[in-house]
Design a protein around this nucleic acid. Structure first.
Length: 575
RNA sequence: GCGGCGGUAGUCUAGCCUGGACUAGGACGCCGGCCUGCCAAGCCGGAGGUCCCGGGUUCAAAUCCCGGCCGCCGCACCA
């Protein structure tokens, strides 16, 4: 047993936190089970995220639950169907991979568009195309990270497992906006599972084919981005360690900025993005990761997704895999909503009402429908609607220059069209919100919490989770394992704590030292020992997992003392 | 997907090279009993194994060979 990762895997399996799924059938990589204590730990991590992102911002941020499976059109609109499917060949000998369609286009000058993989394979073989490295291309295969399925009994009804939560928020945006009374900013958060059919997942829980994401789409007014972050001041002074793309390209080191400085110096392009990065930092610190082990790394233009104008990976140092991305913070602009508007024809804009209605003089295209009707007969309405779609300025210019208007091949003489300037009252305008997206990997968060909690002390193992994250909060232990009186009292205290809503372990098996050691391995912050003094005066001892110190409190005060302790109060303050 | 290394009770491992007495050994953990007035003490007993899977070689395979699966590392990939 050499490194921390191995110790953690061992402990996690042995004590029921997590392990690879389907082991009895040989296992399938990219899938992990969470055991009894893993489930509890994850619940606490999720609850911490929810507290920081949703509950603390509940005026603006709300939660959504949307389906795991979506019809294909959703991911056509999002660009996933297109961007997740690549025909690829592996070249024999070198093992290098190339895009099969690119290879064909370059070598043969033929467009491979619409060809099946079989056709491409056949073509490559028949025409003797070589790989750029001189090797022989193998069979063409398709790599699409979307898990494909079928919705209902008809084969044409293709569905996909979502590879991210974001599309659920975009698709339901209109409804949520309405429920929140049509105001920006609006954050829609979601915690849920996603599937990505990774080509070759490794790294245990770090890269999975199915995992939990905790994500928020924070919709802002594109014309008032700064005003969309009303809580900015709360974290303006928080320091973030940032490695900007420029600095990275020059081989530079990360720099520390306050959130405010990062925005002022345009290291972070958007105030909201910066704010949520600071919340993200607080979340990861709450997992037990010290601030100096957290870093924000900006993605370069070629590295980030097509929709993003700025993306930071929030990374945490791990023992085995170095810096691991636990979150992505992206400025997604209006890409997603615009795409869904054009695919669905739904209006996903937000109406911004002005304080005072504006009176504006606008030019309008006025059409003489009688004249139009005589000229175009049954095509009249089509010509009319096309004319309406042209900006008045364009029509005016054409009339002035050519004395007629040409639209989609129809020529409309000036007798049928004129430009009029009218006074109009404008009460507001429609905008397509921009989106700031912090997105966290739940399972990576769990792994990271595990790694930072792992301690060894005097040859024993302790999981020193932050107390409020611990899967089980207390253990109740009779001092001796064969004294009926101690056992009966201990069981009463155990039941009382369970009634108060705690997760508690009762254990009377083995020496007291052995039982302390067991609870330390599960990360139980408080061990309650029932001894002979308890029988006399109804007091018990509370032992702190981290210091192994003990204090004595009255049994009836135990629930409130435990609550205080879990919130971080020092042991000595409890009696 | 390519290359290297590995896979033996819950966990870690011995055995593998040099096939046979391996009915697969140990440690820790787990369960029961005794003991025990606070940190994995001791004693007794117990449960727990598809030796990763499949095929082959052989009189005989945990052990040798081939294929597969899974894991780790490097490369590739990672909207």
């Amino acid at each position: 047993m050499s490194d921390l990762y191995e110790k953690i895997s061992d402990l996690a399996k042995r004590r029921g936190f997590f392990w690879p799924s389907y082991e009895i059938y040989g296992g399938v990589s990219g899938f992990y089970d969470l055991g009894p204590y893993g489930v509890l730990l994850k619940q606490r991590i999720i609850e911490k995220w929810r507290e920081l992102f949703v509950r603390n911002h509940q005026e603006y941020v709300v939660e959504l639950e949307s389906p795991l499976i979506a019809p294909s059109v959703v991911f056509e609109a999002s660009g996933h169907v297109e961007h997740f499917t690549d025909p690829i060949v592996t070249c024999k000998g070198t093992g290098r991979r190339y895009r099969a369609d690119h290879l064909i286009e370059e070598a043969l000058g033929i467009s491979a568009e619409g060809m099946s993989t079989e056709e491409m394979s056949k073509l490559l073989r028949e025409r003797g195309v070589k790989c750029p490295d001189g090797g022989e291309p193998g069979e063409v295969t398709t790599f699409n990270l979307l898990f494909k399925t079928q919705i209902g009994p008809y084969e044409g009804d293709v569905g996909y497992l979502r590879p991210e939560l974001a599309q659920g928020m975009f698709v339901a945006f209109k409804r949520v906006l309405e429920a929140m009374r049509n105001k920006l900013p609006l954050g829609i958060a979601q915690i849920g599972r996603v599937g990505r059919n990774e080509i070759s997942p490794r790294q245990a829980m770090i890269r999975l084919r199915e995992f939990t994401i905790m994500e928020m789409e924070y919709f802002v007014d594109p014309e008032d981005r700064d005003g969309s972050c009303p809580f900015f001041e709360e974290r303006a002074g928080t320091r973030l360690r940032i490695l900007s793309y420029d600095a990275k390209a020059k081989g530079g080191e990360p720099q520390s900025f306050t959130v405010e400085e990062a925005v002022m110096e345009k290291v972070i392009v958007d105030k909201c993005l910066a704010y949520w990065m600071a919340v993200g930092q607080e979340f990861v610190e709450a997992l037990g990761v010290p601030r100096h082990e957290i870093l924000f790394v900006e993605k370069g233009p070629g590295e980030r997704a097509h929709y993003s104008s700025q993306t930071f990976d929030q990374v945490v140092r791990t023992s085995r895999w170095g810096w691991v991305e636990v979150a992505g913070h992206s400025y997604r602009g209006d890409y997603d909503l615009s795409r869904h508007m054009s695919y669905s024809k739904a209006d996903l804009t937000v109406f911004k009402q002005y304080r005072e209605p504006l009176n504006v003089r606008v030019k309008k295209v006025m059409v003489d429908k009688g004249a139009l009707g005589r000229l175009f007969r049954e095509k009249t309405m089509e010509v009319f609607s096309r004319l309406q779609s042209l900006p008045a300025e364009v029509v005016e210019e054409q009339l002035a220059k050519e004395g007629k208007v040409t639209v989609d091949g129809y020529q409309v003489p000036k007798e049928a069209v004129r430009i009029e300037e009218v006074e109009e009252k404008v009460t507001g305008k429609k905008v397509v919100p921009h989106v700031v997206e912090p997105s966290f990997g739940g399972d990576r968060a769990l792994y990271v919490a595990f790694e930072y909690a792992y301690r060894e002390k005097e040859g024993r193992v302790i999981l020193a989770f932050p107390r409020d994250l611990a899967p089980v909060q207390a253990a109740v232990l009779p001092l001796l394992e064969n004294d009926e009186e101690l056992i009966r009292t201990a069981r009463e205290i155990y039941k009382a704590l369970v009634r108060e809503g705690f997760y508690v372990i009762y254990d009377d098996n083995g020496s007291i030292g052995r039982r302390y050691a067991r609870t330390d391995e599960l990360g139980v912050p408080a061990a309650i020992t029932v001894d002979y003094k308890t029988l006399e005066d109804r007091t018990v001892t509370i032992r702190d997992r981290d210091s192994w110190n003990q204090v004595r409190v009255r049994a009836e005060d135990l629930p409130s003392a435990l609550k205080k302790f879990l919130r971080g109060a020092p042991l000595e303050s409890l009696p």
